[in-house]
Write a protein that binds this DNA or RNA. Structure first.
Lengths: 123, 123
DNA sequence: CTCATTGTACGAGAACCATCGTAGTTTGAC
DNA sequence: GTCAAACTACGATGGTTCTCGTACAATGAG
């Protein structure tokens, strides 16, 4: 339907993605975004990579559409940035913004995730 | 269903409430418990009081049954302890357990909540 | 152009959650 | 015993989330 949707992407080619501004990031929403095992895994992988990661580089035991869903939740709640590079969509943690807003929070969550993974892994 | 006081309920009269053991507390569940504005408020109030607080001492803009619900979510996910004293139900943050499991997490969340409240409050 | 890669959109279904009101239970005080 | 206070249990409702499959769109390579 509709007329071919030239859409808001006035720019040439590059598909653009909406991100909340730093001042629009809310603690409860960040916590909600992190409160899911899949998304916690994504965030840990992103933090470990310390840079850009392709969506497909993070292996998750869910379908592709579910994957898209989780990445979107993280982006819309201000936890990650996403941008296109060719056919790939790259992801990065918004460390600067999160550290500025909630000092120490992301570090604590990452450390906690690591500790819990170790505890549950070893016996 | 009908758990019927599985644990220490042997004592006379005192209604007992089920709490997860320290090693059963999961990061994702704690984050989920904290990822709600009402519950964040409860936790902040509890931390500020630094002791036991009556359920009714924490004013929330929701009905009493909803209040019960939120307190239960916090308790069942290991964030708070609850016990009866007369007709009142007292609440306390499980700081020891949480700090042992996830060092710095609760502090970071509390500080973040305070910062955000200040930012949103002032103009 | 054609093709493979990569990710999205759109339903859809099941499960979960926040909220409420009403009725009931437990306790301490009178 | 009676009563008020404090909280719970239950059922309902409306919203959100997680998951999926299938069909589609954008890009770069051949």
């Amino acid at each position: 339907m509709s007329t071919e949707t030239p859409a808001a992407g006035a720019a040439s080619g590059a598909r653009s993605l909406a991100h909340p501004a730093r001042e629009d990031i809310r603690l409860a929403q960040v916590l909600h975004a992190l409160a899911d095992p899949m998304r916690l895994r994504i965030v840990c992988a992103l933090a470990a990579a310390d840079g850009e990661l392709n969506c497909a580089d993070i292996e998750l035991p869910v379908s592709k559409s579910t994957c898209t869903h989780h990445f979107r939740v993280l982006r819309e709640n201000g936890v990650i940035t996403q941008f296109y590079r060719g056919t790939a969509k790259m992801n990065g943690l918004r460390r600067d913004d999160l550290d500025a807003l909630f000092p120490g929070l992301i570090d604590a969550v990452l450390r906690a995730a690591g500790l819990q993974a170790r505890h549950l892994g070893e016996h």
